[in-house]
């Protein structure tokens, strides 16, 4: 006799191959939920926010456990790779410090030992810490279904809070992150009330590529988290910097513009006004820091 019970009325399956997983999804996709780390899914089931009839544990699917890098193809992160594994992967700490930084602040050590970057983006919380960094790095989601694979630019991935452009019969297999170009650098900063174990009130990632001689900005990416229904790039703000030499004044303008482009809401964590202010501050700080990493002197 035991008093335990399932957290929900669902069937649990743990397929060992991508093919089987996709076959199951093509039949039952609409009622199924993918379980990778479970750090978002399990509380959602427990609290009755969702009640899937099938929970599909993808941790045994080999393709979803890949983690590799080479110069040409870039980084491939299987959708079921736990964040803690990713953080100890040398190529990431060496070449994708912005991503390492973003992933290192998600949840706690316990959460990072289970949670995955795939789950972080599929859960599509506006505050997902990995999203702004991935947007800056030009990441693509590799999505598979019975009918084949497709690539989704991360810019087109997030639809609404909790909603992505992945279809019910599709599975996120991996995330591809191109190798950052030479002379590029960036960072992610967020604001939380507590130091750790908190959800971003606002997060900003900036990523700059410079022309090595002129030190002018060749490419600029700035992405925001927790200040709109989805993580988003602020193209207007980015445009202000492209082709320019960095000055203190221009950074201020960019920060202001980023704050303009944000669409924050007021909730129990903060007011929209404060979030907008944070976007300004964090944009400014990430830009300064990125310039510092690139060894650019900012003209006053």
């Amino acid at each position: 006799m035991t008093s335990t019970r399932s957290i929900g009325k669902f069937e649990y399956k743990k397929p060992g191959s991508l093919r089987t997983t996709l076959r199951i999804l093509s039949n039952k996709g609409a009622d199924a939920r993918i379980l990778a780390g479970g750090t978002d899914l399990i509380p959602q089931i427990k609290q009755g926010q969702i009640s899937p009839s099938l929970v599909l544990d993808v941790k045994n699917v080999p393709e979803l456990n890949r983690l590799d890098w080479n110069e040409d193809r870039g980084l491939r992160i299987g959708a079921a790779v736990p964040l803690s594994k990713l953080l100890t992967f040398v190529a990431i700490s060496e070449r994708y410090s912005i991503l390492a930084q973003a992933c290192s602040v998600i949840g706690s050590m316990q959460i990072r030992n289970r949670g995955t970057i795939g789950g972080n983006i599929c859960n599509a919380a506006p505050s997902a810490d990995s999203a702004p960094a991935l947007l800056c790095l030009g990441a693509r989601a590799i999505v598979a279904s019975k009918n084949g694979n497709r690539k989704i630019n991360l810019d087109d991935f997030f639809m609404a809070p909790g909603k992505t452009s992945i279809g019910a019969d599709e599975l996120l297999v991996e995330i591809e992150v191109p190798t950052p170009p030479a002379h590029s650098a960036g960072c992610y900063m967020r604001h939380t009330t507590r130091e750790e174990m908190d959800i971003a009130v606002a997060g900003v990632a900036s990523f700059l590529t410079i022309a090595p001689r002129s030190k002018k900005l060749k490419e600029v990416r700035i992405a925001l988290g927790a200040v709109a229904p989805t993580p988003l790039r602020v193209h207007g703000a980015e445009a202000l910097l492209i082709g320019k030499s960095v000055t203190e004044r221009i950074i201020e303008e960019v920060a202001e513009e980023a704050a303009e482009e944000a669409k924050p809401i007021s909730d129990i964590r903060a007011s929209a006004e404060y979030r907008r202010e944070l976007v300004k501050v964090l944009t400014r700080r990430t830009l300064w820091k990125s310039c510092e990493m690139l060894g650019i002197e900012i003209q006053r």
Binding site: S6, L35, G38, T39, I42, M109, Q110, I111, N113, R114
Partner: peptide, 8 residues
């Protein structure tokens, strides 16, 4: 280390 409340 993991949270056993978040694992089935």
């Amino acid at each position: 280390a993991i949270n056993s409340c978040l694992v089935i």
